[in-house]
Nucleic acid binder design. Sequence first.
DNA 1: ACAAGAAGTCAAAAAAACATGACTACACAA
DNA 2: TTGTGTAGTCATGTTTTTTTGACTTCTTGT
Lengths: 97, 97
Amino acid sequence: MEACPAESLLRSLSGKWKPQMFRLAMAGPLRFNSLLRQLPGSNKQSVSTALRELEDAGLLLRTVVKEKPLHVEYVLSEKGRGLLDVFLQIEQFTLKT
Amino acid sequence: MEACPAESLLRSLSGKWKPQMFRLAMAGPLRFNSLLRQLPGSNKQSVSTALRELEDAGLLLRTVVKEKPLHVEYVLSEKGRGLLDVFLQIEQFTLKT
DNA sequence: ACAAGAAGTCAAAAAAACATGACTACACAA
DNA sequence: TTGTGTAGTCATGTTTTTTTGACTTCTTGT
């Protein structure tokens, strides 16, 4: 019995870097240092926090890739992929108006 | 040439009371003191700020109703109504998952 | 005339979000 | 062994958001 069902999703996508990060995640796996370079003006702490919150919201999955240059990847979860359409519609809305 | 088209809309719906307020606006005109009662825990200042920001974002229209007990109403603008579908989908997404 | 409701504003404080810089730990390459 | 890259944490400080409480203005009801 929530006051507003949209609230939690909006909260998990709100924050200075999260929309951009989610958008990049739609295009492919995210990597920490790569994100820092892709988001000019961002910083470790904020990116770190945003990644954790997106993970906590169940939208991203953190996985250690045990390959050649051992690294960490963040990919859209099942739930995150489910958000794809909605996110694209939000983009459409903005572009339309 | 924006980094992320979804960002501005998400920003205008982010804030402690805005999603709930937008939701109420979908159901009908908003009134200041009425909102304060409908949002337990809220306060004048926050509601006032949120109303102004939603108005600035072009989602709500402030109108003085020159009738019986002269008052102010905030109603969804054209743009605000255009957001209706998207907002409902966000709600659906949350309820689904 | 007086009180009460509607729609606020203002200054200040408290809380939350964001940024900075120093530091850690592990892997790999020269 | 020294350096570079990846992926962070930690303490601290700044900025933004949200809350509190006192005050204002206009209109209506008694």
